[in-house]
Design a protein around this nucleic acid. Structure first.
Length: 286
DNA sequence: CTTGGGTCCTGTGCGC
DNA sequence: TGCGCACAGGACCCAA
């Protein structure tokens, strides 16, 4: 579900319920997600005020007043569900007692002093959480090797050209490599390549400066539009506030194998690159 | 160093 | 209806 636009959408939904709030209660319902949770995870969250909620690539970062940052990655199927106090009977208490119908994959639950509950639900459990000193957060092993944010000045035609220079891998795989640019996933890599007119199997190092210029612009435009639409909703995914993102209707090639290209009418094709589906127009992309 | 493939986990949708 | 298989928005780890 979550690439950069979806994580940004989740962040925006969580800011009003978490920022400035104290985590009155935290509950950890299993010992591990993708990796073991840090020692005393729930206790370390409890009593902390969330100073700021930000996003780096596909990671949510909640800076706590005790000096640690709560780091959250949604993986493939992770969701942050918000339940407001007025929509439930009980106040702060034992989650299982309050919610006999707690979902199987509700792994972490926090309740703020305002009575709002935030539930991390993740069936596939590819998601992850950690606690890390805020003043060293950029050195976190998961963040240290990330490439530039797509909207930052550090991401530019020149920097992309330099990052791709000499690489023998397909450009599609390079866009999924978070060290090249942070935040793209399978959907938006396909969409950006289509919009830039670049064939997904092109060798990274073969792209011209002009093509890199188009790619930078189209990556930004695609992500921009997706964020404005509240992200993409596949399956029954919903934003934290229960709203559905609508950008899946804006996909031009992703998931459209066999359909006509929206630009030229040529049938869109699907290939597999490094184990992931790639959708593209064989005529528009060269 | 780069690159490609396997892997973690659960759920869903499709063809038979 | 039931069953098996392919596939799903991520990214780490390791062999070559």
């Amino acid at each position: 579900m979550p690439e950069l636009p979806e994580v940004e959408t989740v962040k925006r939904g969580l800011v009003p319920v978490l920022e400035g709030r104290v985590i009155a209660k935290a509950l950890q319902r299993r010992a591990d997600l993708r990796w073991p949770l840090p020692p005393r995870f729930a206790e370390r969250l409890q009593g902390q005020r969330v100073l700021a909620l930000t996003r780096r690539s596909k990671y949510l970062l909640a800076a706590l007043d005790g000096g640690e940052t709560w780091m959250i990655h949604l993986g493939m199927s992770g969701r942050m569900l918000v339940h407001h106090a007025e929509t439930r009977r009980a106040q702060i208490g034992d989650y299982l007692h309050e919610h006999p119908a707690a979902e199987t994959h509700d792994h972490v639950v926090v309740t703020t002093e305002a009575g709002t509950r935030v539930v991390f639900n993740d069936p596939r459990r590819f998601g992850a959480m950690d606690l890390w000193p805020t003043d060293e957060i950029e050195a976190h092993p998961r963040l240290a090797s990330l490439g530039p944010e797509p909207f930052s000045n550090a991401f530019s035609p020149a920097s992309l050209t330099a990052a791709l220079n000499g690489r023998r891998t397909a450009i599609k795989a390079a866009l999924l490599d978070q060290r090249i640019v942070a935040g793209l996933g399978n959907i938006y890599a396909c969409e950006a390549l289509f919009r830039a007119g670049v064939h997904p199997t092109r060798l990274s190092g073969s792209l011209t400066v002009e093509e890199c210029t188009r790619l930078v612009a189209e990556i930004r435009a695609t992500l921009d539009e997706a964020i404005a639409a509240g992200g993409s909703s596949l399956r029954d995914y919903r934003q934290a506030d229960g709203e559905l993102g609508t950008f899946q209707h804006g996909f031009r090639v992703y998931g459209r194998e066999g359909e006509p290209c929206p630009v030229c009418g040529t049938i869109i094709e699907r290939i597999v690159q490094s184990g992931r589906s790639t959708f593209y127009c064989p005529r528009c992309q060269s």
